[in-house]
Amino acid sequence: MTIVLGDNRYGKAETRVVRVTRDGDVHRIKDVNVSVLLSGDMEDVHLTGDNAAVLPTDTQKNTVFAFAKRYGVGEIENFGLRLARHFVDAQPTIAHARVEIEEYAWNRITERHSFVRDGTEVRTALVHSDGTGGRESVVSGLKDLVVLNSTGSEFHGFIEDEFTTLRPTDDRILATAVTASWRHRGVGTDWGDSYRAVREHLLRGFAETHSLSLQQTLYEMGRRVLRERREVCEVRMSMPNRHHFLVDLQPFGMNNDNEVYFAADRPYGLIEGTVLDDDAPDAPAAWS
């Protein structure tokens, strides 16, 4: 038997950065969580403990802070590309960089410098780079986008066996917390405009689909994004079914005409799927 070192990478996870941009008394906030993973000529550090090829993870953390000061954060896709290219271009032992960023939105309370956190939704970006002039990939996304249709959803015609208790319905609440990511064809996109447009198409796809299943809704949401935004070539989604069950009010002499529900948080159905353009460029399997 021959034992060899397989794929490997290392980095600094979850560096939290809050960047305040001050224009006199008027401030702007960027609140991000940055994770870096690097790979390259790392065989010796694993096999012999020789650290000569290793850029310390503490240095990676410091680079994130320094770049936030030097360049600002801006659109998180651009910030990720700038960091990834730097790590590969600056160090000969590093061949590939993966940078993942979450952004937490804040809304103004006043016109100057007071803010309130904008719900639970999080914007995301995942960047891969082989350095300036090399292969690159940008995946934008969001998570915890909570949506609900109070009608316009059915579920029936499913398999029934000896353990089935779920009753078919032609009118139910459909609720979920969307996690979505979308791969771009290139890196020359207006990231902010693209993000806002894709998010709106996801919302419209959810709202405007008369749903016979959450799977159908997922597909229609992804299809709408690909149809309307040519810079996007692939959409991946994970959508838990946040079940709402009608409460039996008959013991109290009351009818319940789809008005009062019990919102169950677990267990829940989980629907995942990918919608892609069949002429989309392939994404390297390792770039995840």
Rank of each mutant, 00 (worst) to 15 (best):
E14I: 01
T164D: 05
S288C: 06
W287F: 06
A264E: 13
A53F: 06
T2H: 10
L37M: 12
G269A: 05
D161K: 05
L5S: 13
F79A: 00
W287H: 09
D144M: 02
M42R: 02
V247D: 01
F206T: 00
S129D: 12
V146D: 02
F67P: 07
R108M: 04
G192E: 12
K61G: 04
F115M: 10
V4A: 10
S35E: 10
H156Y: 07
A283T: 15
V34Y: 01
G253L: 09
V116I: 14
H128S: 10
L226M: 10
D282G: 15
D23H: 14
Y268R: 11
I271Y: 01
S153I: 00
E111V: 02
Y71M: 12
L47S: 12
G273E: 04
S114C: 11
V146K: 10
F155L: 08
E259M: 09
A207Y: 09
T164V: 08
H46D: 04
T21M: 06
A66I: 07
T2C: 06
G141P: 00
F65W: 02
L37A: 15
V198I: 15
D265F: 03
Y104L: 00
A264H: 11
A68M: 09
H128M: 05
L202G: 06
W182A: 02
N33L: 15
R196F: 08
F79V: 02
G24K: 08
R22Q: 13
G131C: 06
L126R: 14
H86V: 00
R266G: 11
T21P: 01
M254C: 03
L202M: 13
D89V: 14
Y219H: 09
V4W: 04
V54Q: 07
D25W: 13
R123I: 07
S194R: 09
A90K: 11
L83A: 06
S35L: 04
G119I: 03
L55V: 15
D31W: 07
A95E: 08
V116W: 05
E234R: 14
R229T: 13
V17I: 15
A180F: 03
T209K: 01
Y219R: 07
A105C: 03
L212I: 07
Y104R: 03
L203M: 14
S238M: 00
S211G: 11
R135W: 02
T59N: 14
R204M: 06
M42C: 02
A285Y: 04
W191A: 09
F163Y: 15
L81M: 12
M221P: 12
A286F: 04
Q216A: 09
D50Y: 02
L148R: 03
R242H: 14
R224F: 00
G253V: 10
V88Y: 09
L47A: 12
R82S: 08
D193S: 11
R236W: 13
N256V: 10
S39K: 12
G131T: 12
G152H: 08
G186D: 15
H184C: 06
A52N: 05
I101T: 06
Y219A: 08
Y261R: 02
A84N: 09
S150R: 14
P267E: 06
G157L: 07
